[in-house]
Structures are given as structure tokens and as C-alpha cells.
Design a protein around this nucleic acid. Structure first.
Ligand code: FES
Ligand code: FES
Lengths: 143, 143
DNA sequence: TCTTAAATATGATTTTTATCATATTTTTGT
DNA sequence: ACAAAAATATGATAAAAATCATATTTAAGA
């Protein structure tokens, strides 16, 4: 479903959503521990997310990672796309090709509608939305 | 979602459902080509499925793989369980742990119901069911 | 301007998954 | 019994994903 890396990345971004802003930056070593991901590994993922403008960062003394208001509007899928690649979810459940509505594989009819809902959800849920669920106590961290 | 190996295995089993029975066995080299999977690789998967009694086989001259009537009643999930391992699907969308209803992760509420439907479908669809869809022209092979 | 603390770039290593190769065992037909 | 043809067992190699290590660049503060 989601790769280990994507899960890690989402957890890290959520952590930033809850614990950072333009004024308050967080450095990798203070992110890696609470989300239970090796520091060097999450660092690499965060760098990639920053390069793709999913999250923000500034380096040097007093630097760190953080989320701007704009960053928070991004969808969860945008994180996954950066880490796992765009076409990860479009692949057919049974083959290595893309899912083809006109020539569906045997599993398409019964499974694709649900998979499609998952995709649409990931696309429509913003980082801010998810963070709010945690703040409201409807969902739990850390993991 | 499904590993490459599981996809391969399902394709092979479907091929057997459509082209074999107790009287008509098929050997690996005649399975691998039509389903587009390397022979040595699918051989290994089929052996494992046979050992776990998902499919049937007999060796030696005139031997091969085939599906008995009982084999056909198995669910698609049983194939996946053998190849990818039982707990592959139970894992949380956001963590490495099992999905926990009482302490749901932030993605649980919006995604789990759909994932759950996919799981239930895989558990309820039999090999025979899937083969029928192909025979009726509702789904297409090869892939 | 210099030191320090941070991200960044790059690449090496390890682990897992996928793939390939081959010797052994079993069954059937002669 | 024997020869041939099949699955089976075992393990080696290759590719991809995950993890670790380290040198470089950048920014803040003294
Ligand atoms: S064609 Fe296979 S899932 Fe759509
Ligand atoms: S707890 Fe994460 S998907 Fe259920």
C-alpha cells in the first residue's frame, strides 16, 4: 500500500504540522526520536520533501524544518507522490501495468472502486486536516 | 498492495483454473509463457502453493500442476497469504504495527473502511468466481 | 569575520525481494 | 528394470528498498 518510506514521511510531516511554524523550526534530531524513525533516514526523506516544496527548511544555525501555512494545504497524496513516485497507485491490482478500465483485469470490478476511494481520500485530505484530527483527540500519535 | 509475487501467483492459479483439471495437467513451461512470468520464478511460487495445498500437482512423466474442484473453492486471499504472509494486510496504513481500532492512527477513520472492504472481498472471492468472470467476458487476460 | 550549528549532497552498506541455476526425486511408459 | 520427463529442494545471484556515514554548504550570532 504505502511504502515504509512514505509512512515515515507522513509521520514526520504530521509531527511538523503539530510542532512547528515559520517562527518555530525543528531540527531532524528532534523529529526522528518522537516519530520512531532513524535520524539519518528521515533526514534524507525530509530533504527530498523540502526540495519538492512540500515542507520548508532553513539551514545553518537556528535552522530546521517547519511547515508554512501554504505547506499545510497540501494533500497527503502529495507526500506519497514525492516519496513513492507518481504512478505508484495507478498500477493494476493484478499486473504491473496501469489499471485499464476498458480491459479490466479479473480483480478490477470488485476491488478498484475501493482502491479508487482510498486514492481520492488521500488526494483530498490536507496535512492540516489530519493534524486537526489529532488535536481533537480523534486520532492518535505517536506510532 | 499486492507484491509482484502475489500478482504472479494469482495469474498462474487463474490460468490453471481456466486450463486444467484432474485429467489435464499443465507443466510450468506451458504456464509461464502465457502469463508473462519467468519460468524458474513461477515454478518456485507454484511449488509453494502446492505444498500449502492451494493447488495440486503430480510429478514425473505426464505430471504437472492442476486445480481440483476443492482447490477452486479457495479464496484469492488464501493465495496471497501463502505468498506474502498472513499479516501483510493487517498492518496500519501509517505505522508498521497492526491496525488498532481503539487507538486509530490519523488515516484510519477515512481509509480503513475501504481497505477493509478490499480485504473482505479478497477473502470472499473464490478462484472459481474469478475464472468465471473471465469466461463470461467480463474480465480480461492475459496481463 | 570567525565559529558553530544546522540542512544538503553524495554515496556506501545492509536487508529484502525478485530472479536464475542446478542437482535430486518421483512417476510413467517401454 | 530402465529411460525420459516432470516437480521438488536448495541455494546462488541480481535488483530494489531501506539504512547508515560523512564531507560540504549555509546562516546566525559573537
Ligand atoms: S485493471 Fe487491474 S485493477 Fe484495474
Ligand atoms: S490504525 Fe492505522 S489504519 Fe488503522
Amino acid at each position: 500500500m504505502l511504502s515504509k518510506s512514505s509512512k515515515y514521511a507522513i509521520k514526520a510531516v504530521l509531527f511538523l504540522a503539530l510542532n512547528s511554524n515559520d517562527k518555530k523550526k525543528v531540527m531532524v534530531k528532534d523529529i526522528s526520536e518522537p516519530i520512531n524513525v532513524p535520524q539519518a533516514y528521515i533526514a534524507k526523506l525530509l530533504q527530498e520533501l523540502s526540495r519538492q516544496n512540500i515542507i520548508s527548511s532553513s539551514r545553518g544555525f537556528k535552522g530546521g524544518f517547519y511547515l508554512s501555512d501554504n505547506n499545510r494545504k497540501q494533500s497527503i497524496m502529495s507526500i506519497v507522490n514525492v516519496i513513492d513516485g507518481e504512478k505508484n497507485f495507478n498500477s493494476c491490482m493484478l499486473s504491473l501495468n496501469e489499471c485499464d478500465e476498458d480491459k479490466p483485469c479479473p480483480l478490477h470490478k470488485s476491488l478498484y472502486p475501493f482502491k479508487s476511494s482510498i486514492i481520492r481520500n488521500l488526494e483530498s485530505i490536507s496535512i492540516k486536516d489530519l493534524a486537526l484530527e489529532v488535536e481533537l483527540g480523534n486520532a492518535f500519535l505517536p506510532l
